Amino acid sequence: MDVGVVGASGYAGGELLRLLSNHPKFAISYISAGSNAGELITAIHPHLTHFKDRKFEVTDTSKIDKCELLFIALPHGESAKLISQIDPNLKIIDLGADFRLVNKGSWEKYYSGEYAGNWIYGLPEVVGSSQIAKEIRVANPGCYATAISLAIAPIVDFIEMQDLVAVAASGTTGAGRSAKISLIGSEVMNSLSSYKFGGVHQHTPEIEECLNRLAKSEVKLSFTPILAPIPRGILATITSKLDQPISITGIREIFEIFYRDSAFVSLLPTGQMPMTSSVLGTNNAQIQVAIDEHTNRLVISCAIDNLGKGAAGQAIQNANLICGFEQDLGLRNLAVR
Rank of each mutant, 00 (worst) to 15 (best):
A315Y: 00
G171Q: 03
T61Q: 10
L307G: 02
E326Q: 07
L40D: 14
V5C: 12
S301F: 01
K196V: 12
L16H: 08
E293L: 08
I152R: 02
A43T: 04
F258Y: 14
S182C: 14
E39H: 09
E108A: 12
R332A: 14
V5G: 14
S240D: 09
K66D: 10
L329C: 08
V165R: 12
A8S: 15
A12Q: 05
P205F: 12
A263Y: 11
H203S: 15
G199I: 08
M1S: 06
I246F: 03
H23I: 14
P75L: 03
T204Y: 11
Y30H: 13
I155R: 06
I44P: 06
A236S: 14
Q317I: 00
L20R: 04
G271E: 03
P205T: 00
S217V: 02
E125N: 15
I28C: 04
S191G: 12
E125R: 06
I72R: 07
K104R: 15
I254P: 01
S9H: 15
L17M: 14
E218N: 15
R100T: 05
I230R: 05
G198D: 10
Q85R: 09
A139C: 13
Q244Y: 00
G281N: 08
R177N: 10
E206G: 10
V6T: 02
V167S: 14
K91S: 13
S266Y: 03
G10L: 10
A27K: 07
G250V: 00
